[in-house]
Amino acid sequence: MSSKRHSILPPVSQTGPKPPVNFSSTITIADSALLTGTHTITVHGESVIHPRARLDSLAGRVTVGRRCVVQERATLGAAAAVPAAAAAAPPAEAAAAVTLGDYVTVEVGAVVEAGGTVIGEGTVVGVGARVGAGAVVGKHCTLTAHTEIAAGEVVPDFTVVYSNGMRRTDKRGVAELKNKGLARQIDVLRRMIPSNPAKFA
């Protein structure tokens, strides 16, 4: 990018405290990702954090598993939309706010609220979806675009949530293939996204 048009990519305003981070050496994190909060943000090996993704550890630890993809404008650890729900969640001070398993994809603009929220291995959180505080999403689930998982809800493994909350079980048995596909995607993204983990250290 030429220096003349630097204004095209506005600088990211880093507000709030800088969190302690625990990065694997093999992750790819874009320069313009936003990390805020006071608790530790852990990102395990080969995960990819896109530009403008937001990880907020103000309410507790944020843990991202191996080979996860957090796309642009996704928010992990957002303050709960309903404060009462947050009170119901375990209020332990150092509790985990958000835990992503391995092979999790959080797509554009999705929001995962803080408060002991767990997302299982191989789950895809679709564009603009919202996972409430304390919800536990099982393994290999698919939350399609704009779906909402209520606070504290437990979603069983292999659930597909679509069309304003309709549910069905994914019986295709393609979890292994999906994980392999995601690994390929990560290989490509590692080359495309300039990584700068040192900025957050």
Binding site: M1, R5, S7, I8, L9, P10, S32, P51, R52
Partner: peptide, 12 residues
């Protein structure tokens, strides 16, 4: 007309 506050990644 491109807003200065737009985020264009990989403009080339």
């Amino acid at each position: 007309k491109v807003a200065r506050k737009a985020t264009l990644v990989g403009t080339q």
